[in-house]
Design a protein around this nucleic acid. Structure first.
Lengths: 156, 156
DNA sequence: TGCAATTAGTTTCATATGAAACTAATATGG
DNA sequence: CCATATTAGTTTCATATGAAACTAATTGCA
């Protein structure tokens, strides 16, 4: 039966698919550098990474900074506290809010992982010139803003 | 304490992180277009998408084509068969292998979703010129090949 | 020819994740 | 001042996912 009117989806040219594939590969590669060695899940690493960059943050701030679901952050924070990698203190100005910081132990884990993930990143972009790297991040930023503006108008 | 010797990780400039954020946003946006409406998970959609593009494939071929874990594909295939969206027939030349195809029902679901996801893709790249789109996919392809070559050398 | 290695796909078990609902605290407006 | 709405974070329940082990069939080599 002729389907001349129907446009089949060519996955290799479908941007969301391509992005997903590459992102998954990188996530696995990243996970391989720290997951077993440091007993960390990707979201836990993300929390450590944020707290390594900023001195202290609340869970809600981490959610907004990393655009990650609050339940996932909550669970990761609880595990990191239990593993004594971060500390949690109630904010005196808003007792709903907690103040999170890396412990010395957490900081040492963070400082051990950073060179590894930076090395991985270097390997990833080894085939790109410096100009191409900048270009890629710029285009990615444009797509990021587009998808964010889509989310602002929920369809329900 | 001076930490002049240590390079903190700046997440906004960290490519894997940026890719992950954008990819997650897109995955959610995509999922919103078909997940509830068509009762599909992302992996199930991926299987439909591949079978919509190719007439028939084995599970193993879908795994390799989409670079997706065989357990995930196996589970998605079983659910799609149960939902009568694809059919599964044993290969006569290799009885380990199954031949998967879209059913009429599955094809109609596929044909309903494709315009939606193509529209979403159009919206995603609305801020890019045609040249920038090509450039982005080319650079993404380079990164893809780099990360694939990393995986070829497992570290254990 | 026969057996070990490999392949195609499935299942088990433990953990992660998503959606929704929850608690406690604060903000806002009448 | 008080009731309602909102915010920060947690918990529950169901489903998804990851890792490992499994079964059945095929391939390759001695």
């Amino acid at each position: 039966m002729s389907s001349g009117q129907f446009t089949s989806l060519i996955l290799d040219a479908f941007l969301p698919y391509r992005l997903s594939i590459v992102s998954n590969k990188i996530r696995h590669a990243l996970s391989n550098t720290y997951s077993k060695k440091f007993d960390l899940t990707p979201v836990e690493w993300r929390v450590l990474a944020v707290l390594g960059q900023k001195e202290e943050m609340s869970a809600d701030e981490i959610c907004r900074f990393t655009e990650t679901d609050k339940v996932a952050i909550s669970r990761a924070v609880s595990k990191l506290v239990r593993k004594k990698r971060i500390s949690r203190k109630r904010s005196s100005s808003d007792r709903r809010r907690s103040i999170l910081r890396l412990t010395k132990y957490g900081l040492s884990i963070y400082e051990s992982i950073v060179p590894l993930v930076l090395q991985l990143e270097d390997n990833l972009v080894a085939g790109l010139s410096a100009g191409e790297r900048r270009q890629f991040l710029e285009l990615l930023g444009k797509i990021d803003r587009q998808v964010s503006s889509l989310k602002i108008s929920p369809e329900f």
